[in-house]
Computed example of a mutant assay.
Amino acid sequence: MEEPQQSSTEAGFALRRLVPPPALCGFLLLLALVFTVSYAAGAAVGPVAPDMQRSGTSGDGGGGMDMGDMNKHGSGG
């Protein structure tokens, strides 16, 4: 038995179906460009608050009181 060969138009159609539309490719390229420029600008400027450091190592974000603070203030029982 002979198998029919695909014509060049059918192969081209299948290839075009797998390739995303040009508008999507352009949008993704523009998005990558914007993120790259944003990252480069942020790296050039540096940290927003260079003197800001964590106040402690309690792991609660530095804003809350741990159990030792509660005992010091007399609110623990």
Results as ranks from 00 to 15, higher is better:
Asp66Val: 09
Leu24Tyr: 00
Arg16Leu: 12
Asn71His: 14
Val37Met: 13
Gly62Ile: 03
Met1Thr: 02
Gly62Glu: 04
Pro21Met: 09
Phe13Tyr: 09
Ser58Cys: 14
Thr9Pro: 00
Lys72Ser: 11
Gly76Ser: 13
Gly46Tyr: 01
Arg17His: 06
Gly61Asn: 10
Leu30Ile: 08
Pro50Tyr: 03
Val37His: 07
His73Leu: 11
Gly46Met: 01
Ala40Tyr: 12
Lys72Thr: 08
Val34His: 10
Ser58Ala: 14
Val19Leu: 07
Glu10Lys: 05
Ser38Ala: 15
Ala41Leu: 05
Thr57Glu: 10
Ala43Lys: 15
Lys72Ala: 10
Lys72Tyr: 04
Met67Pro: 02
Cys25Asn: 09
Val19Gln: 09
Pro50Ile: 01
Gly64Ser: 12
Ser58Asp: 12
Ala11Phe: 00
Leu33Cys: 13
Val19Trp: 03
Pro4Glu: 04
Gly56Ser: 15
Gly63Glu: 13
Tyr39Gly: 15
Phe27Trp: 11
Ala41Gly: 01
Ala40Val: 15
Gly68His: 07
Gly74Pro: 04
Ala23Tyr: 06
Pro22Leu: 13
Ala41His: 02
Gly56Tyr: 05
Arg17Met: 05
Glu2Ile: 04
Tyr39Arg: 15
Arg17Ile: 00
Met65Ala: 13
Glu10Asn: 10
Leu31Cys: 04
Arg54Gly: 05
Asp66Tyr: 09
Gly62Asn: 10
Pro47Tyr: 05
Leu28Ile: 07
Leu29Arg: 15
Val45Ile: 10
Ser8Leu: 00
Phe13Lys: 06
Leu31Arg: 06
Ala32Val: 09
Ala40Arg: 11
Gly12Gln: 01
Ala14Lys: 13
Leu31Pro: 00
Gln6Ser: 08
Pro20Trp: 05
Gly63Lys: 05
Val34Met: 13
Pro20Leu: 09
Leu24Cys: 06
Val19His: 00
Phe27Ala: 13
Pro4Asp: 01
Gln6Cys: 07
Ser58Pro: 01
His73Tyr: 10
Asn71Gly: 03
Ser55Leu: 07
Ala44Asn: 00
Pro21Leu: 03
Glu10Thr: 02
Val19Arg: 03
Gln5Asp: 04
Met52Lys: 14
Asp51Trp: 08
Asp60Leu: 12
Pro21Asp: 11
Met70Arg: 15
Gly77Glu: 14
Glu2Arg: 01
Gly62Gln: 08
Met67Gly: 12
Ala11Gln: 08
Pro4Cys: 02
Val37Cys: 14
Pro4Ala: 08
Gly68Asn: 10
Gly26Thr: 05
Gly64Ala: 14
